[in-house]
Amino acid sequence: MTRLTEQAQGVYVIAVTPFKPDGALDLDSTDRMVDFYLEQGATGLTALGMMGEAPKLTAQESLAVVERILARIDGRVPLVVGVSAPGFAQMAELATKVMEAGAGGVMIAPPGSLKTDDQIVTYYKQAAEFLGDIPFVLQDFPLVTNVQVPVSVIARIVNEVPTCVCLKHEDWPGLEKITALRAEGTLDRRISILCGNGGLFLPEEMARGADGAMTGFCYPEMMRDVVRLMQDGQSDRARDLFDAYLPLARYEQQPGLGLAVRKYVLAKRGVIASDTIRRPGAGLTPAAKAEVDAMLTRQENRLKELN
């Protein structure tokens, strides 16, 4: 087991869940997908996230996917597993099973019922009590959860719950939040900050003090190189590279369409056999596919100019 710690950095790719055209799990494509992500430099993977279609999986399927990914990773990088659930009993059951299978940690998003700062802090304290010593990622994604988690609340959770080792930062706008969290005296200890939103703000997030990305994109090598270049102080080169991928990244971040775009491109790249979205959900129209294909051609030309 490679355990998640406060030192997590680089790119933790949010893995899609491959399906066959009939909607069944495609575990062979899962193997190829894991190989692809690791070949592209992922320092970790995250399964059963919001873009992994976790709510569409049965409990048995969720565990089967995690076990298949872990078998393919074979201890090379940590796997973080989304275990958000309506109740702590379900959360603890899945968390215990995936950790026993070899996961490195879990990710918890706040339920939409939380309305006050004290409720949010209490929720994470209680979750940590149920999970025991399992390290967890606090997912801060108010655009989806409808829960606003201010800096002061994140600080209380980090300072009072030692098993919170990482923040998945997806607030938008949220750059000032990163700056505030990295300010001296805000946190009693330094934790990892990995950012989401498809990497749309990755250069700026890295400049503000993030440690990398925990998100998905159909070209994870872009995130790998941007993170590395920003860490090496080559910000202009990082932004030039980022700009080459930006039209596709922007297109992929369309609410309700982004996963279909990501799976379509991954299928074109031979990573997964089918771009099937499990119902409810639909794939791309011919017009949308043509738009993506045109962006891929232009992206390839821009990358050639950079090199």
Rank of each mutant, 00 (worst) to 15 (best):
P247E: 02
L202W: 01
G233N: 11
R208E: 03
L194N: 07
G199P: 13
F201I: 00
G216K: 02
M222Q: 09
D225F: 03
G233V: 06
G196Y: 13
D232K: 15
C195F: 05
A260S: 12
P255S: 07
G209V: 09
A244G: 05
Y251R: 14
F242N: 05
F242I: 01
Y251T: 00
R228M: 06
G209A: 12
G258K: 07
P203K: 04
P220M: 03
D243W: 12
A244W: 06
M223R: 04
M223Y: 13
E221H: 15
C195M: 06
G233F: 11
R190I: 00
Q253N: 14
P220L: 05
G209Q: 13
L187G: 01
E184W: 09
I191F: 07
A213S: 11
D188P: 03
C195T: 15
A260K: 12
R228H: 09
L259I: 13
G212V: 01
R228L: 09
L266F: 15
R239Y: 10
T186D: 02
R228D: 08
R189H: 06
K263E: 05
P255T: 02
D188H: 12
G258W: 07
M230W: 04
R224I: 00
F201V: 01
M223K: 08
V226K: 08
Q253A: 10
D232F: 06
F217W: 10
F217L: 11
A260G: 06
Y219E: 04
L259A: 06
L187F: 04
M214P: 05
Q253R: 11
A260F: 10
D232N: 15
P203S: 00
M222W: 03
D243N: 14
S192V: 02
M222C: 14
G196K: 14
Y219Q: 01
A249L: 15
